[in-house]
């Protein structure tokens, strides 16, 4: 299954269904949120166009390549896990349409997260090669997942205003810490090692301390220099370009029908 623009392979009959379902849910989430943006006066087409033109931002994580089945598991577990931490907080955001979209999204995301964790569990308890595949995926995705929460509070440009307006309810660093605290015991349960030598439980704070994030990499990726930025946007551009004649045809047909009905 050539899902999205990656190189994924199908695995079992059971999983090709769930994973396709998963991507479909995500496209649905895109729809809800673009619709929420419509309530602020920006049309869906405009939003998509800004994405394609490279003006709109999207999560830095999508600019990393997906190269193995374990990546699918690790993305579900960590990336959707991080998204949930963010989005659970956003259910209480001050803007109603955004908050309501988040309620539905959270339900589906937590299904994805559980599915991802289950994939990791199966691999971690599988053959040596499977366990290694799982560990490599964790190594690859751990740090980019932490970066998903955005720059540290000291550096974040938009945070102050968003917090004041209660759009954001918790700071980037708070959410990141919440994610680490939640995920470390899960990795232990899997018997996998988080790739951070500084990771340690801090009895005084009751939280896990973790090592420094490579912010140079983060800024490089959000400025278009991640391994897949160009491919990802190119895939969007291609879909739009190649779908143009289809949309034009649908409009032309609808207009003919309206004229017929009016006559």
């Amino acid at each position: 299954m050539n899902i999205t623009s990656g190189t994924e392979e199908e695995v079992t009959m059971d999983e090709i269904g769930t994973i396709t379902d998963f991507i479909q849910d995500e496209a649905g989430h895109g729809l809800y949120l673009y619709s929420a943006m419509e309530t602020l006066g920006k049309s869906r087409d405009q939003s998509l166009q800004e994405l394609i033109d490279g003006k709109a931002k999207y999560s830095s994580i999508f600019n990393y390549p997906t190269t193995s089945w374990a990546d699918i598991g690790a993305i579900g577990w960590l990336v959707d896990g991080a998204a949930i931490v963010n989005q659970v907080a956003l259910q209480r955001t001050s803007y109603g349409p955004y908050a309501r979209a988040m309620v539905k999204i959270c339900k589906e995301e937590s299904f994805h997260q559980r599915q991802g964790f289950e994939i990791m569990m199966t691999l971690a308890n599988g053959t040596k090669a499977q366990k290694q595949m799982a560990q490599e995926a964790l190594n690859k995705i751990w740090w980019p997942a932490l970066m998903m929460f955005g720059p540290s509070d000291k550096e974040s440009v938009h945070s102050q205003k968003s917090m004041a307006w209660k759009i954001k309810r918790q700071s980037n660093d708070e959410l990141r810490q919440e994610f680490v605290d939640m995920t470390v015991p899960q990795a232990e349960l899997l018997g996998l090692t988080i790739p951070d030598p500084d990771l340690k439980f801090n009895k005084k704070t009751g939280h896990y301390d973790f090592g420094p994030i490579n912010w140079d990499e983060f800024y490089a990726v959000i400025h278009g220099h991640g391994p897949c930025n160009k491919e990802r946007l190119e895939a969007r551009r291609k879909a739009q370009e190649e779908g143009e004649w289809v949309k034009e045809a649908a409009l032309a047909h609808a207009k003919k029908q309206r004229n017929l009905n009016a006559a």
């Binding site: 299954m1 050539n2 269904g17 895109g30």
Partner: peptide, 24 residues
């Protein structure tokens, strides 16, 4: 399923994949 993420519109993308899931 090869259309997943590449459809001419989001609605069409979702509709095609619905059919793919039914068939699988």
């Amino acid at each position: 399923s090869e259309w997943c993420g590449h459809g001419p519109e989001l609605e069409q993308d979702i509709a095609l994949i619905n059919v793919a899931l039914d068939l699988i």
